[in-house]
Design a protein around this nucleic acid. Structure first.
Lengths: 342, 342
DNA sequence: CTGTTAGCGCTTTCAC
DNA sequence: GTGAAAGCGCTAACAG
């Protein structure tokens, strides 16, 4: 089915002028007689003319589009970041293509191809938990297309990154638990491939160390971030001969799952076992008890990432700034760690 | 900053053949000598050649892109639909551009423009709660670009629509409450502009009527779906001289807000007042008590919508099928309406 | 102020 | 099997 969309040629013919003049009138070029401009604008409006961005992109070799690749879309975390990103992008006159990789490396590679084929002017990326090879992103660098990582960043690439202070956040969260008198604090950690996992783990470890608590291997469980595994490992922890009296989870979905398991087992939160999560997802204020968590400024992450991207786009190709912007987190104390907050 | 991306001309020059041949080799045209093809493919791979979809789109006047316009991105509802939609779109070889309108009519109009300018081959739309004028979507029809509405549909346009059975869902939910012995059932309804609001309201009314319960105006409160208003109206209901013994909310965020307010007031759920929501958002299983709700098949909605869109795209322009696909809902009973389920 | 021309990267006749 | 040429819709010199 071949459609014919109205073009500047149609308008030119109708008005007996050249298409250049129509183009100029439409783009606000100064050198156009007011009446001519008025006539063009009126006709364009009348026939629902929409400038063909594809053709424009071809001639300017800029698509005016930014790509965003996120690992998943299940909780509100990444959608919130996308909202922030879209806001800044739109203000700067850019469209946004979003694709989610379903935590699959293959899909991520395919998504990167799509972005490339659609000639995005820049791309924002948060990696899947599977990604260990970054060739599909290095291509962007080679082609001079700016790339900015956020949240789940690629360490080996020298490009701008936006993260939160995972180490500080984790440290503060665990010290908070220690402050509530907890002594056997377990950590459900993320996969070692993700930098956020390692940073948060480090924060956990240093918090224990600083406060003279022993670091017990049996209380540190790295896992793959799936709900099913979370459930299994929490059960495992509770069944230890000497179970933990607190649990610091790598993220909120995990912490929430933990709370369900703990409650099902008839234990009291936070008296028997306290729980702290990470991110302050929408759901964390809703569960019972409320989840104490390290809040991340989601929208801000999206905004800053786009700003960094726009800055890169105005630069020369070779001049990559590999700075990392670290945003602050904030501990939000709720009932899962402090009975008074119930 | 002008970048040079590798083109078929570069490859042709390198191999001393014409760009036509390169094009043929790349697209799998039969009339290419095997060796030539092999050489082209090898070089393309080596230089990270990515076919420029913009140029392709220009010549084929198809962008291979579908647009999705959703009203918001705050809960998991629309993101889930997007996931389903992307899945089917990808399988059919289409990319997806997503934009969210922030429940703002203005933004929706802008988003529609973007889709048009980017020459999407088809568009999926769910309206904002503000939208009363549909000119920005009628343009698609006039230009012969297929459009499919889902969830929040436009009644006055003769195009395919995907909805769930809001009437049946609401009816079943309210009858469930009646079955639990509730007699003064309030309804926090959505704005009258949305068909889903009216359908669900109708289901509510008919359920009361069928069961010989009075229809009380003071117990029906249409509102604008904001969290703040939800809170105010729930408080208002609880302060009535004769407060309701159950609450049917237009959606889950509203129901969840209601539960918070009711608990804060020290009333028991479901004994003093039962609550039922709509959609089965991620959070509804997490709150305490669990929220009884009318589950919608989110991913399925996205999938079916894209299927309908693809069907339209294979048709002649004029031949619009205005069928409405109605998907089934399922009542999920949890503690907010039935103590036994706690 | 306006028209003419060239060209962005690609596919697609039409020749050979 | 391959090349030459035209054209998708638009902008950007270059002339007038």
């Amino acid at each position: 089915m071949k459609r014919h969309q109205t073009t500047i040629i149609d308008i030119a013919r109708e008005l007996n002028i050249s298409k250049s003049t129509v183009s100029r009138a439409l783009t606000g070029h100064p050198n156009v007689k007011p009446e001519t401009r008025k006539a063009v604008l009126a006709l364009a409006e009348k026939v629902d003319y929409q400038r063909n961005m594809l053709a424009l992109s071809l001639v300017t070799s800029r698509s005016n589009t930014l790509g965003i690749i996120v690992p998943e879309f299940l909780t509100s975390f990444f959608p919130q970041i996308v909202i922030g990103a879209q806001e800044v992008a739109r203000q700067a006159g850019y469209n946004v293509i979003v694709s989610q990789s379903d935590e699959s490396y293959e899909t991520e590679v395919a998504n990167a191809r799509v972005m490339l084929a659609n000639r995005v002017d820049g791309v924002l990326v948060s990696l899947t938990k599977e990604t260990r090879n970054y060739d599909h992103f290095k291509v962007f660098q080679r082609k001079g297309i700016p790339i900015v990582f956020f949240n789940r960043v690629c360490e080996e690439m020298q490009v701008p990154k936006v993260v939160v202070d995972d180490y500080e956040g984790a440290l503060g969260a665990v010290e908070h638990l220690i402050g509530r008198g907890k002594k056997r604090i377990a950590h459900l950690a993320g996969p070692d491939s993700l930098l956020i996992s390692r940073k948060r783990l480090q924060g956990y470890k240093d918090a224990l160390r600083k406060n003279g608590l022993p670091l017990l291997d049996e209380l540190i469980i790295p896992y793959d971030l799936t709900v099913e595994k979370a459930k299994i490992y929490v059960k495992h922890l509770l069944d230890l001969s000497e179970p933990p009296d607190a649990l610091f989870a790598i993220n909120d979905p995990t912490a929430i799952e933990a709370i369900q398991v703990i409650k099902a087992k008839g234990l009291r939160i936070p008296e028997d076992i306290a729980v702290v999560g990470f991110s302050n997802d929408y759901a964390s204020a809703l569960i019972e008890p409320g989840l104490t968590t390290v809040a991340q400024p989601m929208r801000e992450i999206g905004k800053v990432a786009v700003q960094l991207l726009l800055e890169q786009m105005e630069r020369e190709v070779t001049d990559w700034k590999a700075m990392t912007r670290i945003l602050k987190t904030q501990l939000i104390v709720r009932g899962s760690s402090a009975a008074a907050y119930r």
